[in-house]
Simulated scan of single mutants.
Amino acid sequence: MIIQIYAFTRLADALATVELGVDHIGFVAGRYGIVHGELDFKEARALVEGLPTHATSVALTMATEVDEILRMVQEVRPHVVHISTDPLDVDETAMKILKHHLPEGVRLMKAIPVAGEESLELARRFSPYCDFILLDTKVTGLPGVGATGMTHNWRLSRQIVETVNVPVILAGGLSPENVAEAIRQVRPYGVDSNTHTNRPGSPVEKDLQRIAAFVQAVRQAEWEGKD
């Protein structure tokens, strides 16, 4: 099972996290003044280039224009591009163009908010243009999808996992304390944590002890699921 952790601002923390067994290292690429932890393209590129070859770099973008997203990819060179805006801000046509124009080997991930039955339809609509679907929580007053620290309807998430034909990464309020139950209920391809692996009171500083506990909980649940 893939473990993805957001949102790194320091290479040292990212390297330590890889050593703990995390697969996907996430960061916010682009200083737009929208979300916490934004890196400019030069900073993001340095983080990507500093990672070991077996780690996967995941660049979250809040840009809505295809040309700007492609510019980010050219400047930063991540392995995965994570579209985290509200779903229709980068619609199916834009996703199709992105998929066609991304450099070979760069994968595309779309954040889908899990809120009601319409989430299932959104996942179906976007899955043909994605390498991953990320299921996350959307709340009023916060931009885009995610970084809320709140869980959502895991029953609906399970339906999406069983319906779409692309790997699904479950996000939204996951912590060392609840990720095992989330895995049991949803059976995703991977899990993601941001808020609940930060230091208490900080929106950007990562807590390596919390990350280690998260990894341990995931691997234990994964092992138990093989029984």
Rank of each mutant, 00 (worst) to 15 (best):
A217T: 05
V215N: 07
K110Y: 02
I169Q: 08
K96F: 08
F27G: 00
L174N: 04
M1G: 00
N153G: 02
L20A: 14
E181F: 01
P87W: 15
D13W: 00
T197E: 10
T17R: 07
V139N: 04
A180C: 14
L170W: 02
E19A: 15
E75P: 02
L174Q: 02
L134P: 01
E224R: 13
H24G: 03
V215M: 11
I112M: 06
N165W: 03
G116A: 11
Q4Y: 03
V22D: 12
N165D: 05
H24R: 12
A46N: 10
R124H: 10
M150D: 03
A180P: 02
V76T: 03
M109N: 02
V204N: 12
A115N: 05
W223H: 13
S175K: 01
A94R: 08
P78C: 02
I5L: 14
R187I: 08
I133F: 07
V179N: 05
L135M: 13
I112T: 04
H79A: 14
E19I: 07
A111M: 04
K206A: 00
V164K: 01
Q74G: 13
E181Q: 15
S84P: 01
L98R: 02
V73C: 06
A55M: 09
T9R: 14
T197V: 15
E117A: 08
V114T: 08
Q74K: 15
T61D: 01
R10W: 01
V106T: 08
C130W: 09
T195D: 13
V166R: 12
L98N: 00
E121D: 15
A46D: 14
I211F: 05
D136R: 06
T140S: 12
K138R: 15
V145F: 02
Q185A: 08
R219T: 05
E222A: 02
E121H: 15
V139E: 14
R77K: 15
T151S: 15
I112H: 11
Q185G: 05
M72H: 06
S84R: 04
Y32G: 13
S157K: 04
R184C: 08
R155K: 08
G21R: 10
H196T: 04
G190L: 00
K226P: 00
S84H: 03
Q216V: 07
A182C: 12
K42V: 12
I133S: 02
S202K: 09
S202V: 11
A29E: 01
Q4I: 10
L134T: 00
S202N: 11
P176F: 08
A212P: 11
I169M: 07
V81C: 09
V66H: 06
T148S: 07
F214R: 01
T61E: 05
H101D: 09
E181T: 10
